[in-house]
Design a protein around this nucleic acid. Structure first.
Length: 348
DNA sequence: AAGTCGGGGTT
DNA sequence: AACCCAGACTT
């Protein structure tokens, strides 16, 4: 029995019931695929339900405000996915109305859709014969073939894409693609894969050569950098100052507070002398309401050490135009990074 | 080709 | 602490 047949049989017996497997609507499939990029199914599932309910068609998503989209995405990370998703909804709705594309050649041109996602949508929605290669498939194929070529290099991507295309079941590419990913995720999982009860065991090169635990090979990722954030929660008669984060840094399009970043931790006396701090407060007097402990927040390439300084203004001060002021009760309408919501949950 | 972009689960 | 996740984009 060949690879595709074995995978198909395994999938019939082991598949999970997932909502995006019950539709052929390319829009809903696209929604699920964007949400699932670099994200575990269990983590993405509640977000999929929220987006599918709140934005049932591409027109609904295209009509939404960016703040609404970001708010619904809040907490999921990699926020460029949400911004690109929103942009693509507008593009599609403008150019094609409600008919979301389902062909690879059209999909690949859209923002936020790369080779994996275009293959996934076109195979699931239109049964186009495009083989998906996600993290699960890389692992499965690397082990099955025994190939130790690094999966995060151009050569590796080329090699495994060709292998996946070769193994693709062209009679049923959509189900085949679902099956290989599910197999990689659950049977051929990263740690402690179920090799002793694996239907592919007899043909698995890594198992034969005793190197399952060594595959797949990934070249090393760069170290993270440390950053020190001093967040100013500036209150002025029930209003609080917010900052919308721009391009060139983390958390673009989310909101936080006026920020003084320093190259090293600073104490109270040190912070209040900094030019960046005084520029925000001008000469206005303020009361220091509270100073938090240092919170550590870990991202993929950064570790952020954050302190929150709650200040109450004595008398009115018009903030710089880059900041907005909102009633504290209205803050829930804005999307914040996890670091901020964690602090607010524990301190308000 | 290398760097960047989150947050959470697992080992 | 290191690795990984239904990757894509920028430089």
């Amino acid at each position: 029995m060949d690879f595709a047949k074995i995978i198909a049989n395994w999938y019939r017996a082991n598949k999970r019931d997932l909502p995006w497997r019950e539709t052929k609507d390319p829009y809903l499939i696209w929604l699920s695929e964007i949400i699932l990029q670099q994200t575990r199914v269990e983590q993405g599932l509640p977000y999929y339900y929220r987006f599918a309910e709140r934005f049932p068609t591409v027109a609904d998503l295209a009509d939404a405000d960016e703040d609404q989209v970001m708010k619904l995405w809040q907490g999921l990370g990699y926020y460029s996915r949400a911004r690109n998703m929103h942009a693509t909804a507008k593009t599609v709705y403008q150019q094609r109305g409600r008919a979301f594309p389902s062909s690879y050649s059209e999909l690949i041109r859209l923002k936020g859709i790369g080779e994996y996602t275009a293959s996934a949508i076109s195979s699931f929605a239109a049964n186009e014969a495009r083989a998906v290669v996600d993290g699960n498939v890389y692992r499965l194929l690397s082990r099955y073939s025994g190939a130790g070529i690094p999966i995060d290099t151009t050569a590796g991507k080329k090699y495994f894409s060709a292998l996946a295309a070769d193994l693709l079941d062209k009679d049923d590419p959509g189900v085949h693609n679902q099956a290989v990913m599910e197999f990689g995720a659950r049977q051929c999982r990263p740690a402690r894969p179920f090799c002793s009860a694996c239907p592919l065991a007899s043909g698995c090169a890594a198992l034969k050569e005793g190197k399952v635990g060594l595959l797949p090979v990934k070249s090393k990722r760069p170290r993270t950098r440390e950053r020190y954030f001093n967040y100013l929660m500036i209150r002025d008669k029930g209003q609080i100052w917010l900052n919308k984060r721009g391009s060139g840094d983390i958390w673009q399009s989310l909101y936080d507070f006026p920020l003084v970043e320093t190259p090293a931790p600073v104490d109270e006396a040190g912070l209040f002398q900094l030019e960046d701090f005084r520029k925000i407060l001008k000469d206005r007097e303020y009361l220091v309401i509270s100073v938090s402990q240092t919170l550590k927040h870990v991202l993929s390439h950064q570790v952020i050490h954050a302190r929150f300084w709650e200040l109450e203004l004595k008398g009115y001060l018009k903030p710089e135009s880059k900041y907005i002021t909102v009633e504290e009760k209205e803050m829930e309408a804005y999307a914040f990074p996890k670091l901020i919501t964690n602090y607010l949950e524990n301190n308000l």
